[in-house]
């Protein structure tokens, strides 16, 4: 197991290297000149101002030199300074990433305990009212746009009932109770949609599994149905569910810009979006790179989780 994990970590090195090159290349290929943004409207054409800014941020060097300097610093944990705030990028990211991870993990965490049992029950009771109810509710969850569901939640729970704040963020480290009140609505908006996907996936995986020969064999041996379902079938059926949930979690880390806007949630997605608009290259580069590393790490964790779900999965 340890060898497998170390091996997978080593495999990450070329992935992260290629990712860093792509990120750096794409960011510098963005249309629009960062010096225009930095210099401002009235001085963008002033050669002296442009030269000073290019020198200050190393933009006067060839692109490969810029990459080498940047990569070298990143390896030492230095992502540089934001062109806009002049603060270290690591500080900018450390303020944002926890908020995003907090939201994404709780969102997915809310969905799993609902979706897995619901999908399992729907598969076991196929073509019964329970199955239809599960399918219809999951279809609704997939069909309703996340932002619209979020607005409905705000209208109901904030405006009409007054139970929860409509937007904002409080760190759980500052005040856990208050933080949770701010978390509920965005996590619900994420969790509802994720639960819908996961319910459908679990149901179809379970249906595949329950028709396999080993299930018939188990039944012929007289094993209790509950044991067959929960000990054998569900564990196998959960492999695609875990895979997809891992990918969904990775997707949520950078893909909640709209929800972050609606709930004024200061996450990494919104930060990268704003940085793109301002052409704040160091923040874009570092943000995308860190998200990329988080995605490959999540994939690694998912692979390791397979082993626990099904010991027959090879780790070679």
């Amino acid at each position: 197991m340890l060898v497998y994990v170390l091996n997978r970590i080593l495999q990450l090195i070329p992935v992260v290297f290629v990712l860093s090159v792509l990120v750096f290349g794409f960011v510098h290929a963005l249309p629009g000149d960062v010096i225009d943004s930095l210099a401002g409207d009235e001085a963008a054409e002033d050669p002296e101002v442009r030269a000073a800014l290019e020198k200050e941020f190393g933009l006067d060097q060839p692109i490969y030199v810029q990459y080498a300097v940047w990569a070298g610093k990143v390896l030492q944990g230095d992502f540089g300074k934001s062109l806009v705030t002049r603060r270290p990028v690591s500080v900018e990211l450390l303020e944002r990433i926890p908020a995003t991870v907090y939201l994404a993990v709780v969102g997915i965490g809310l969905s799993m305990p609902i979706a897995v049992p619901l999908g399992t029950i729907a598969a076991i009771r196929r073509n019964t009212p329970t199955d239809y109810a599960a399918q219809i509710s999951s279809l609704i969850g997939i069909s309703i746009p996340e932002f619209w569901f979020a607005i409905l939640c705000i209208m109901l729970f904030s405006l009409h009932l007054g139970w929860l704040p409509s937007s904002g963020y409080v760190s759980p480290l500052d005040d856990l109770g208050l933080s949770l009140t701010y978390l509920v609505l965005p996590a619900l908006a994420i969790g509802f949609r994720q639960a819908a996907y996961t319910t459908r996936l679990t149901r179809s995986s379970m249906l595949d599994e329950v028709h396999k020969e080993y299930v018939d064999t188990a039944r012929s041996l007289g094993l209790p149905e509950r044991k067959i379902i929960y000990k054998y079938t569900l564990r196998n059926a959960l492999i695609p569910t875990v895979t997809i949930s891992g990918l969904q979690l990775a997707n949520l880390l950078g893909g909640t810009v709209v929800l972050e806007s609606i709930f004024s949630w200061p996450g990494i997605g919104l930060t990268i979006y704003q940085a793109i608009q301002l052409r704040d290259f160091p923040v874009i580069q570092a943000g995308v790179l860190v998200l990329g590393v988080m995605v490959v790490t999540i994939n690694l964790l998912v692979d390791i989780l397979y082993r626990f779900l099904n010991p027959r999965v090879g780790l070679s």
């Binding site: 607005i151 904030s158 405006l159 409509s166 937007s167 609606i262 709930f263 004024s264």
Partner: peptide
């Protein structure tokens, strides 16, 4: 978002 600010006002936040 304009609507987010307005909602925050209406909810007393």
């Amino acid at each position: 978002e304009d609507q987010v600010r307005l909602t925050a006002l209406r909810t007393g936040e």
